[in-house]
Nucleic acid binder design. Structure first.
Length: 579
RNA sequence: GCUCCCGUAGUUCAAUGGAUAGAACGGAGGCCUUCUAAGCCUUAAAUGUAGGUCCGAUUCCUACCGGGAGCACCA
């Protein structure tokens, strides 16, 4: 994509190379100086000095003397060992402002190549806790980043509906069968609470009670065997759970192209492992079938346990086979917690044998924990903080905060701000970083926060709306005098130039975020852009500026609004026109 | 025990090996008859310890201290 700024950078680099008499610089070598007064872009001469065994400052000075300013390049100067460039502000303004349109920031890296993103993946019958919320928010943003880069993304949700956790849950349900029967007529919310408690009871009993442990193991066996005596209970609970998850997906604005279930791939997983056991890829050990990861610098993992049931590992082999046969992706991304990092290394290695086409096409994007004040949350304990708990706490805070009834009495607006606050809070740090969460303080609604971005956007839109009103009020006679002055007569202030440079960076930012699978790069950029704008807002009038400046400033803030909107959408939420 | 990740203001986070280590929250002080005060301005406050590589280290290497995760029949 040939954005004006990349063309300008190219020209700067060409000039440096020409001055040096050989290829000494690349576009990636251009950095932004710490202080705007130093220049807009900078080339460090350390490496060159080392090669030539001279002083970097001297090289910078020599190069600077050989490069002449032109229509785009206002000034070139050596600042110590750095070669610093300043751009012509007006030229920059014209370049950037004509460029910022609806499609701004989109790039075509992917060329429609298919990428699977597996995310959400809650376990059926268990609570949808705030860790799942982070997963879904992260996955959704990564998907949008990839789509923005021209990939065709297939959204996949792989849900655990068979295995020990389900056995525990079903055991819990059977213990409370009268309540189970009664609650069938109650609301979905009540049924979900029941399921949560049933799972917690089963998990606790499994740890504490030998007899329960045996019963649960037996139940697990019967579930894998699809024993007709218990399948109805399994089916009903599963249905409630899935129905409930669907309400959450809708609430957080996520959706899926495919749903896969462990129960569908379990049998095939066993087949794959058994077949490859004969080939010597897997080994038997202590009655189980393992993949000897130890022979590949990893660690051994059980794929079929000694009772003959497939573990998660074996199921993942069948799942991957399914994907690569049906969807034929060029990349399969698993958005899963970072504690699974070593697990995936082993499974990907095993897949290289069982499914050679997957080699190099599997990728684990790991995200960090969400800690509660008291420590890591767990759905094994009764006191789970669910995704909905968090959303409702935040939404309550927002209602309290909004001074005007304009926001308070508009549930849609409150919901939009809530999603912005929660999603931003989960994305603003690095993906792999843990989030320390304090339920009392909720998430941030001021400063570096989602609402701050929305507020900034609404503020700009408010000015633009007023400007349109003023324009339509004007008598036709006013216009000729205004138009008599040339459009290009405006003066670009230093702070405006900084805003333009910031806007120019957006395409690079979207690309970096997609390549690193890291939405925090977008979040950081947007916050800085909003900060710069708010500072500018308090310093410089737009509507009361002379006409030529006013037009330029309106165009500038309009461009800022557009980039804020696009950026926010990449994070997975929406801007609001007022708040 | 082995492996991996992480230690930066009081707190939560930034900083492709480069120029004066940036923000946010919280603290102190200020700004609403001027485009939305969920905002803006001013201010105090930090690289775990000891070495090493380098012209230059928050970043790379080693040791130590402190925290987290993973390491066979869970997912």
């Amino acid at each position: 994509m040939a954005y004006a700024i990349s063309k300008i950078k190219r020209r700067l680099v060409d000039a440096v190379n020409k001055a040096g008499g050989q290829k000494i610089a690349d576009v990636v070598d251009l950095t932004v100086p710490p202080n705007p007064e130093m220049g807009d872009f900078s080339f460090a001469c350390f490496n060159l000095a080392k090669k030539k065994k001279t002083n970097p400052a001297q090289i910078a000075a020599e190069l600077a003397s050989k490069i002449k300013p032109d229509a785009t390049l206002k000034e070139i100067k050596a600042v110590g060992p750095y070669l610093n460039f300043s751009l012509q502000p007006k030229k920059l303004a014209q370049g950037v402002l004509t460029e910022v349109k609806e499609s701004y920031g989109q790039i075509n890296l992917g060329k429609k190549k298919k990428v699977i993103v597996e995310y959400a993946c809650p376990n059926v019958n268990k609570a949808f806790h705030i860790g799942h919320l982070r997963n879904i928010v992260t996955g959704e943003s990564i998907i949008r980043l990839l789509e923005n880069c021209g990939y065709k993304v297939i959204r996949v949700n792989y849900q655990g509906d068979v295995g020990m956790h389900i056995a525990k849950s079903v055991w819990g349900i059977l213990q409370a069968e009268p309540e189970f029967i009664k609650i069938k007529r109650e609301s979905l919310a009540k049924r979900i609470v029941f399921l949560g408690k049933a799972y917690a009871a089963g998990a606790r009993a499994y740890e504490e009670n030998k007899q329960a442990e045996a019963e649960i193991n037996e139940l697990n066996r019967r579930l894998y065997a699809q024993d007709p005596a218990i399948m109805p209970v399994w089916k009903i609970a599963r249905q409630w759970s899935l129905q409930y998850f669907e309400t959450i997906y809708q609430r957080v604005r996520s959706r899926f192209n495919y749903y896969f279930f462990e129960s569908e791939v379990a049998a095939r997983g066993v087949e794959i492992v058994r077949k490859n056991l004969a080939k010597g890829i897997f080994k038997t050990s202590e009655g189980a079938v393992i993949f000897p990861g130890g022979e590949h610098g990893l660690h051994d993992r059980v794929f079929i346990n000694s009772a003959g049931f497939p573990t998660y590992e074996a199921k993942d082999l069948a799942l991957a086979e399914n994907w690569f046969k049906k969807i034929k992706p060029s990349l399969a991304i698993h958005v899963v917690g970072k504690e699974q990092t070593e697990y995936f290394k082993v499974v990907f290695k095993a897949l290289e044998y069982t499914l050679p086409p997957s080699k190099g096409k599997e990728r684990h994007v790991a995200y960090g924990w969400v800690h509660l004040k008291g420590g890591k949350m767990s759905s094994r304990l009764g006191n789970v903080v669910t995704g909905e708990d968090l959303l409702s706490v935040v939404s309550g805070e927002i209602k309290k905060l909004s001074k005007t009834s304009a926001v308070k009495n508009k549930p849609k607006l409150v919901e939009e701000i809530t999603l912005a606050a929660v999603k931003y809070a989960m994305l603003k740090g690095g993906v792999e970083k843990d989030i320390a969460f304090n339920m009392e303080e909720s998430v941030s609604l001021s400063g570096n926060s989602g609402p701050y971005l929305l507020y900034t956007y609404a503020r700009i839109k408010s000015i633009i709306k007023k400007a349109k009103k003023l324009k339509s009020k004007k008598t036709p006679q006013d216009k000729p005098t205004g138009q008599a002055k040339k459009q290009s007569d405006f003066i670009v202030r230093d702070d405006e130039k900084q805003l333009l440079l910031k806007l120019a960076l957006f395409p690079e930012i979207t690309q970096a975020a997609a390549e690193k699978y890291d939405p925090s790069i977008i979040a950081k950029y947007l916050f800085e852009l909003a900060q710069s704008f708010n500072d500018y807002y308090h310093r410089v009038p737009v509507l009361k500026a002379p006409e030529t400046e006013r037009e330029f400033r309106l165009a500038l803030i309009n461009a800022i609004a557009l980039v804020l909107k696009k950026g926010v959408e990449l994070l997975g939420f929406e801007t609001v026109e007022r708040m």
